[in-house]
Simulated assay, not measured.
Amino acid sequence: MQEFDDIQSLWHSHNVEVKISSGEMLVQAKKEVNSMRNKSLLNILGMCLSLIAMACLWLFFDFNSWTTHVGITILITAIAVYTFILYRGHRLISKNDFTANPNDFLQELKLYQLSRYSLYNSLYWIYTVALSVGTALLFVEILAYFSVWKQVIAIICTFGWLLFCSTIVRKVVVKKEKERIALLIEKFERISGQF
């Protein structure tokens, strides 16, 4: 028993200090910030492509029902607003040079964290409801051309996909992004402390 106590006291007294220079930390932070910027740009690009696809659908197909036009209008509006919100968030993390002034970038990063929190909570649900309503109104005319089984499959697949993305995928993405931003904020706080 004495040997165990000796090993335990040795273990508790042994402190390992990991020293990372501010330069190394800045290099790591630069990679993470560039990764966040690129991911943000890809999200914006994907939303712009969705917006163009919806506009093309409206322009190149002759819809007869007013519900289809209202549905497409709701979809385009929701996508455009969400794209603008994503763009505002992207500007927060890309307008400052974090190597010149880490403190300013840290403040912008905290604002970005708040905007992402808002985006993934209340704004996301407004976006999801708008997509659901727009799709439902769009389906009124489009599904009339399908057989009953194809209608059921289209409705189940579409709203199942929305449900899957709103629950499982959203939780995973939010968790990863929260951890990533929190870690980046911690790094910049350490960098600012070292300067």
Rank of each mutant, 00 (worst) to 15 (best):
167 T>W: 06
151 Q>L: 08
157 C>W: 07
102 P>Y: 06
179 E>K: 15
31 K>T: 11
49 L>R: 03
123 L>M: 05
122 S>M: 08
38 N>G: 11
44 I>W: 00
38 N>M: 10
108 E>M: 09
21 S>P: 05
175 K>W: 01
182 A>G: 01
12 H>R: 13
23 G>L: 12
118 S>W: 11
99 T>G: 09
162 L>G: 08
108 E>Y: 08
115 S>L: 06
32 E>T: 09
168 I>C: 12
105 F>K: 01
165 C>P: 00
52 I>D: 06
71 G>T: 03
149 W>S: 13
154 A>T: 15
166 S>Q: 03
17 E>H: 14
145 Y>F: 12
66 W>G: 09
104 D>F: 02
9 S>Q: 14
71 G>I: 10
55 A>I: 13
48 C>N: 04
60 F>Y: 13
139 F>P: 01
54 M>I: 13
178 K>V: 04
4 F>C: 05
48 C>A: 13
11 W>G: 03
22 S>N: 08
161 W>R: 01
187 K>T: 03
3 E>Q: 11
31 K>H: 13
142 I>V: 15
125 W>Y: 15
40 S>C: 07
27 V>L: 13
194 Q>R: 02
184 L>C: 05
170 R>N: 13
20 I>F: 08
85 I>Y: 15
162 L>Q: 02
62 D>H: 09
194 Q>H: 03
81 V>Q: 00
169 V>Q: 06
177 E>S: 07
66 W>F: 12
94 S>R: 14
62 D>G: 03
2 Q>T: 14
99 T>E: 15
94 S>D: 05
50 S>W: 02
22 S>F: 00
107 Q>Y: 00
89 G>V: 01
83 T>G: 02
28 Q>H: 10
148 V>G: 07
157 C>N: 07
87 Y>L: 09
43 N>S: 14
76 I>A: 08
133 V>N: 02
108 E>S: 15
5 D>P: 00
146 F>C: 08
9 S>L: 10
34 N>V: 02
180 R>H: 12
24 E>K: 02
147 S>Q: 09
169 V>S: 08
84 F>N: 10
109 L>E: 03
10 L>D: 15
149 W>H: 06
71 G>F: 10
186 E>G: 04
102 P>Q: 07
71 G>L: 11
155 I>H: 04
122 S>I: 13
96 N>A: 14
40 S>V: 04
23 G>A: 11
149 W>C: 11
63 F>V: 02
15 N>I: 08
189 E>R: 11
127 Y>M: 02
162 L>R: 00
146 F>L: 15
104 D>P: 01
130 A>Q: 04
106 L>A: 05
25 M>E: 08
174 V>H: 11
183 L>E: 12
137 L>V: 04
4 F>S: 09
193 G>P: 00
113 Q>D: 10
164 F>L: 13
122 S>T: 07
137 L>G: 03
129 V>R: 03
8 Q>T: 09
132 S>T: 12
162 L>A: 04
97 D>W: 02
105 F>T: 03
149 W>A: 13
